[in-house]
Deep mutational scan, measured.
Amino acid sequence: MDETGKELVLALYDYQEKSPREVTMKKGDILTLLNSTNKDWWKVEVKITVNGKTYERQGAVPAAYVKKL
């Protein structure tokens, strides 16, 4: 869990989004888990830093590609 009490997951593999509802992640990324009720796809929040600014993006990733921490 992070400092706000939200559950975290670890990306076990790289994943490139294939639709606007998904998010890209790299192996080793730590993501915030938002919903894991679907056994195949979990909704997560990814933090992306671009030019020193951090953005948050929500989307789905394959459940088999992440592990709860």
Rank of each mutant, 00 (worst) to 15 (best):
L69F: 08
K43M: 15
Y65E: 04
D29N: 05
K67E: 14
K27P: 03
N51W: 04
L69C: 14
T54S: 11
E45M: 14
K26I: 06
A11F: 03
M1S: 13
K6L: 12
E56S: 15
L12F: 02
K26T: 07
L10V: 15
E17M: 11
S36K: 08
V66R: 00
Q16I: 14
W42V: 07
D29R: 02
L31Y: 08
T37F: 08
N38G: 10
N38W: 05
A60E: 15
V61I: 09
A63G: 04
L31H: 03
W41G: 01
A64H: 12
E3Y: 14
N38M: 07
N51Y: 06
V61D: 02
K26D: 02
K18E: 07
M25I: 15
S19T: 10
S36M: 10
S36D: 15
D2N: 14
G52R: 02
V66W: 03
K67G: 06
L69T: 05
L10H: 02
K39E: 11
A64K: 14
V44F: 01
V66G: 01
T37H: 10
M1A: 13
T49Y: 10
R21T: 13
A64S: 14
E17N: 06
K39V: 10
V9C: 13
L33E: 00
K27Y: 03
Q58K: 08
K27A: 12
A63H: 03
E56H: 15
K43H: 15
E45C: 14
D29G: 02
G28D: 04
Y13E: 10
G28F: 03
E7K: 08
K43N: 10
K68G: 06
T4S: 13
Q16S: 10
D40W: 14
A11I: 05
T54F: 09
M25Y: 01
T4L: 12
K53C: 12
V46A: 08
R57F: 09
L33T: 00
R21P: 05
K26S: 07
K39Y: 06
E45Q: 12
T54K: 07
D29I: 03
T54H: 08
T54R: 06
K18C: 10
D2P: 13
K67L: 10
L34V: 11
K47Y: 10
K6E: 09
K18R: 14
I30P: 00
V23L: 10
V61R: 00
G28M: 03
P20D: 13
Y55K: 08
A63E: 04
N51T: 03
T49A: 07
K39W: 05
M1H: 14
K27C: 07
D14S: 07
G52K: 04
N38S: 09
T37W: 07
L34C: 07
E56D: 11
T54V: 12
K27M: 06
K26Y: 09
V66C: 13
W42S: 00
A11K: 02
N51P: 03
V44E: 00
L8E: 06
V50I: 14
G59P: 00
T4R: 14
V44H: 00
E17P: 14
K39P: 14
E7G: 10
R21C: 15
K47Q: 12
S36P: 05
D14F: 04
V50G: 05
Y65C: 15
V50S: 09
K27R: 11
K68N: 06
K43P: 02
L69E: 02
E7T: 13
L34E: 02
E17C: 12
Q58G: 04
Y13G: 04
E22H: 05
P20H: 10
G5D: 11
M25R: 02
D2F: 13
M1W: 13
V9L: 09
W42G: 00
V50P: 00
L8M: 11
G28K: 01
N35K: 07
K26N: 06
M25S: 00
K53N: 11
K68A: 08
L31R: 00
G52P: 01
E7D: 10
D14V: 06
A11S: 05
K53E: 12
Q16W: 11
K68Y: 09
Y15A: 02
S19I: 04
Y13M: 11
I48P: 00
K47E: 08
L8V: 08
T4F: 12
Q58V: 14
V66A: 00
Q58C: 10
R57L: 08
K67W: 07
P62C: 08
K68W: 06
Y15R: 00
A60H: 15
W41N: 01
Q58D: 04
L33R: 00
Y65R: 06
V44D: 00
G5N: 12
K39G: 10
I48S: 06
L69S: 01
R57G: 04
Y65P: 03
P20E: 13
Y15G: 02
T32Y: 09
P62H: 04
D2W: 12
Y65A: 13
K67S: 09
E22A: 05
V23K: 01
E22N: 04
L31M: 12
A64T: 09
K53F: 12
L12P: 00
T4M: 13
E45S: 15
E7C: 15
Q58M: 08
E22C: 06
N35Q: 10
E56G: 11
W41F: 06
V44Y: 02
K27Q: 08
V50D: 07
K39L: 09
V44G: 00
Q16H: 13
L12W: 04
V44I: 05
G5I: 11
T49G: 05
W42R: 00
S36Q: 11
P20Q: 09
E22T: 06
T37M: 10
K26V: 08
L10P: 00
Q16G: 06
K27L: 04
M25T: 02
V46M: 09
T32S: 07
G52W: 03
K26P: 01
K43L: 15
L10M: 13
E7H: 12
Q16V: 14
P20Y: 08
P62R: 04
K43G: 07
V23D: 02
A63F: 02
T4N: 12
L8P: 03
T4G: 14
